[in-house]
């Protein structure tokens, strides 16, 4: 699904990722954990294709294609979607416009006909229910006036509608109360499947109680220094990053 090889990237001339390697297979859930400043968010932004995040060497292949050569919108249409740590508010652009545009862009990319408006609405209704969101959310501006928790739910709602092959979650759990965390986790678990993968980037172990990963990686100073199964997350929780980083 995703293969990152010796990835180096910098922001404003400052190296952040320094030789990162990661392989994510179909149907797998990976958690990437690490202290602040280790490069977690940079990795997400690089994969989503944001300007200003300069890849200096290395490669990323997604479903056998060169991901780094694709424009951000092509990455999304090919099935790589990022749930932002800080989703932006876009007043005046209704959620439903965004979802419909994104959904149809994806279908067009695959050579499928546009979806019928009624069918699409049915789909939206069903997915908003999973996220325990009121339908009125659909007619509000994207994240406009949403609380932190509502914004995160909205990110997952978009994923449920767009059904990415690879869902990349950047600190989606931060700032959530336990109820919201459960709803968000349930949404992500709905996304899991044999041919779908999830990469969770998180600072805390508690998300992993709800979304159980197949692999856990520790990111430090721009490289993955240790990988293991879900027990590694518990170890991090118990002993702190510092010990793991020093031991590695």
């Amino acid at each position: 699904m995703l293969k990152i090889t010796d990835l180096h990237a910098e922001v404003d001339g400052k190296p952040i990722l320094k030789g990162l390697n990661l392989e994510v297979g179909s149907g797998e859930v990976h958690a990437i954990m690490g202290p602040n400043g280790s490069g977690k968010s940079t990795l997400c932004q690089v994969l989503a294709g944001r300007d200003g995040y300069q890849v200096t060497s290395g490669s990323v292949s997604f479903e056998g294609q060169d991901l780094l050569a694709m424009a951000p919108e092509i990455r999304a249409r090919e099935g790589l979607l990022l749930a932002f740590q800080y989703p932006v508010e876009i007043p005046g652009v209704k959620n439903v416009y965004l979802l419909k545009a994104a959904y149809n862009a994806q279908r067009e990319h695959r050579g499928e006909p546009e979806v019928d408006a009624f069918e699409f609405l049915q789909l939206l209704r069903e997915r908003t229910r999973i996220m325990k969101m009121d339908e009125s959310f659909l007619h509000r501006g994207v994240n406009e006036g949403f609380s932190g928790g509502e914004k995160k739910r909205n990110e997952i709602l978009q994923m449920l509608v767009l059904e990415p092959k690879l869902a990349l979650l950047d600190e989606t759990d931060s700032g959530l109360d336990i109820d919201a965390l459960k709803v968000v986790s349930e949404g992500v678990n709905t996304l899991r499947g044999e041919d779908r993968s999830v990469v969770l980037v998180t600072h805390y172990q508690r998300l992993l109680d709800h979304i159980v990963p197949d692999f856990v990686h520790v990111l430090s100073d721009g490289r993955i220094i240790k990988s293991g199964d879900k027990s590694l997350a518990l170890e991090l929780e118990a002993n702190g990053y510092q010990n793991v980083v020093e031991a590695a």
Partner: peptide, 14 residues
């Protein structure tokens, strides 16, 4: 720019 990127990251072209 942030809003633009957000929309593009959902598959909308520029």
């Amino acid at each position: 720019e942030q809003s633009l990127f957000y929309l593009r990251s959902r598959g909308l072209d520029d």
